[in-house]
Nucleic acid binder design. Sequence first.
DNA 1: AGTGTATAGTTGCTTTTTACAACTAAAAGA
DNA 2: TCTTTTAGTTGTAAAAAGCAACTATACACT
Lengths: 260, 260
Amino acid sequence: MIGCDDPAEPGKVGLTTAASDEAEFLRRYDAARYEKPSFTVDLVIFTVRDEHLHVLLVKRAEHPFKGCWALPGGFLDPRRDASVDACAARKLIQETGVRAPYLEQLKTYGSRDRDPRGWTATTVYFALMASESVRLLGNQAEASWVGVRGDQVDFELAFDHAQILADAVERLRSKLEYTHIAVHLLPEEFTLPELQRTYEIILQQPLDKSSFRRRVIQADMLEELTGKQRDGFGRPAQLYRFRDYGRRTFFPRSISRHAR
Amino acid sequence: MIGCDDPAEPGKVGLTTAASDEAEFLRRYDAARYEKPSFTVDLVIFTVRDEHLHVLLVKRAEHPFKGCWALPGGFLDPRRDASVDACAARKLIQETGVRAPYLEQLKTYGSRDRDPRGWTATTVYFALMASESVRLLGNQAEASWVGVRGDQVDFELAFDHAQILADAVERLRSKLEYTHIAVHLLPEEFTLPELQRTYEIILQQPLDKSSFRRRVIQADMLEELTGKQRDGFGRPAQLYRFRDYGRRTFFPRSISRHAR
DNA sequence: AGTGTATAGTTGCTTTTTACAACTAAAAGA
DNA sequence: TCTTTTAGTTGTAAAAAGCAACTATACACT
């Protein structure tokens, strides 16, 4: 049968014995280590303010692209970051002070020419948060919320960040079609009209009220806060809270429902 | 904190002169540069054979996990690979000789302890191909198609590859629900019963014939090869070919169709 | 040729889900 | 009280999916 006949001992990292094939391996490993690409983590942090989708950008203080706006992020620190996810969470807190609204890995971009300094790879995460919950910390760099038009901002971005932003917007829109993801763009307690407005802003089209409510409520991911309402101009709206058990989607009929 | 400031010179590396009275920042930057995580690319290559989903695995010839089965992959080579995508394509050809059936980035896994040698990150791709089109090249390593049961194989895998495989299977299943992706598991010309059978094998449940046909055909991504049929026991089946304009899904009603 | 059987493909009806529009409800202000 | 504004519901028609029975076309066997 097939098994692992030689489990490595974690912690003991190889330089020990003089087994010749192991030595050869280490030689090649060392060589490879010198030619590793640089590895960074970048963030696409979205929020909705003033009836528009916004993304958090920072102004670069150093070369390359000095003075240019870019997605926040930077080198992963192997001593500090136990994992790529942890690195992303750390950078998110650094920038926004917010611990865990919604953070999901988007994609990894890596090539020889995306950075003039040479081969780099960046793993990009996208985060959603309520604009109220954020106080920009912007460590040394100038940071700002920037409105997104279509799938881009009004000016040039550093590196391939324009493409990354476009991909992130596409992913956001596509996830909106079948998940409750937009709740993370609102405060913890919100009303259905607010949620619908958020969808409309991001999808850039009006939605039918009764269909929207039916779909969102039938998925059974919202908890009604009985008694609590939000006042406004007209009739007060019922408050809800998101509860995340299971990963139900909006589609009652996926293809597997053809089952007989 | 380490920012994306100084250009790294890819040739001139790290162990240089010790701490002169340079800035604390530079000292830590050099240290970090020396401690870049290792970067690899791994592949989850799927095919359907003998009425079951199979994945391509290789037996590791080196430490760690020597003798253990693992996903094919390895270090990215910055001199050879212009991009991460190119690296994945190169490794795919190395293993299977197949150029471009279907190759999509899955996710990046990186942490301090997924490899006993230290901090590593791996960007994983998943590929689909028709089993007929493959001749295993298995360079130096022993390679084999292995049946997938549920979302795993019957034995232990190296590193965190069991988790990666499970994630890949989940992604494959979920994409099957709303795309034509399964056509890449079949030869270029195929029949609707063959396609339906492929769906059933991967989703692990029987589907209704007329609903399946309606859905697949209405999405209008299949070209009927008039005149050509595939013979078998009973009535011959019509041959089709996949044509990939647009990215229509199986869902005629996404949430944005609520538009008014 | 005639019959059985195996697989491919279609059709018709029922049920479920959605779209759309009109309706009621609850607040504020004149 | 009446108008305005926003929230939320209901009823109906249309669309899509589920389900089952039907037809079609091949081969094998007698």
